[in-house]
Design a protein around this nucleic acid. Structure first.
Lengths: 120, 120, 120, 120
DNA sequence: GTGGTCTAGACCACC
DNA sequence: GTGGTCTAGACCACA
């Protein structure tokens, strides 16, 4: 996995996991890789993965069976959708459209870009 | 000036200056405030302002007359527009629309948001 | 380390590092001393070392693993050689030979000086 | 006239003047432009030109007739040649050839470059 | 007056 | 531990 330098790695891991859940690649109530496994596969210190899992657990997206591992919670999908939609509508969209106007990108161009964007 | 905590101050200064240029509040070939002046007016250490000016100079947006001060370069507006448009079209827009699709925000909703966005 | 007064310290640090890489004393993909370490060893403020590292990173000679340290990039040697050769052939050499001609230093004398120059 | 940022302007003016003398464009005992004249023609503050003239006078290259102007001294050419040759042979040449060796520029290439260099 | 460099010391997030 | 940012204060050369 490739990491950018503008965000902490553990945040990028969280984003990746949330995307996997959103895309139904990781299902509800499913056990997720151990911190060591995931750490090894994406070449990141297990502590950093742990930090991401911790945050996800705090947010109610993961839960933990002691000595067994982490699981995707039943309400995970709903939670992620809710918070992300809120962020998207209240923060990202206004910023995005304001940028567009400042840069003279018209509604037509935006619509075209919208249709060009793949779902992957 | 108000600063947020999610970005370094010197970056926020750069953003502010680029916006001023984009909005034609600072014109090409015009002398800009000295590091001390700007520092005093926005209550930031002159070193921090210097760091912003330095970056802007590296990017060709400012140039410098020795012992006199910094100036907005002739190509500043063009440079900013070019890099920002590129970033917008190639990075931000795809990410944004992909998010929209992932979150089931329809084109109609987006269009509505577009029209709601103020130009300021 | 000895510093001269005709160049900023951070530039002299950059030069020293590039020379180390050119002479294969610091290898590609190798971790370099932390800003604090190097600062202590050459008796310079860590901020000044940081400034040098920052520039090297901008130029693609260093890269950075978050929370770990700076590394010599894979293309470092190539980059340094390329830019230095270009500078040498297009700027320094013409200036040098023009000076020689202006000062009536003959090709024979230059050749002699060439052979006298040590490789260190 | 074009100025670089890596050297003070007054030094660049001195260099330019010395070159003019070396090339016999300004002759011995000849009156040189006033500080105001030269300042206007190269778009530099007269104070800065004055600083250059001052230094040249200190070095014995110019002399001054009060109320009349500055003149190229009789020994100017000799003085310039002497100091420049010394600098060239003891500093510039060793540095130059050491660079050449570090960058694997052979004697043949250097000789070729020598012949390519125009005298202008 | 201007930019530019440097130090010392502090604080922070991240790994 | 690591980089990274910021401040306060100093000093300097240059225009």
């Amino acid at each position: 996995m490739q990491f950018t330098n503008d965000k902490p790695i553990y945040i990028q891991i969280i984003d990746m996991i949330e995307e996997k859940i959103l895309r139904r690649q990781w299902s509800t109530e499913e056990r997720v890789p151990s911190v060591r496994e995931l750490g090894a596969s994406i070449e990141v210190n297990p502590n950093t993965v742990m930090r991401a899992y911790d945050k996800l657990q705090q947010d109610g997206i993961f839960f933990n069976k002691r000595g067994v591992g982490f699981y995707v919670s039943a309400s995970a999908l709903e939670l992620i959708l809710e918070t992300r939609r809120k962020l998207f509508l209240e923060q990202e969209a206004p910023n995005f459209f304001q940028s567009a106007k400042l840069l003279n990108v018209s509604l037509e161009e935006l619509t075209k870009l919208y249709h060009q964007t793949s779902n992957t």
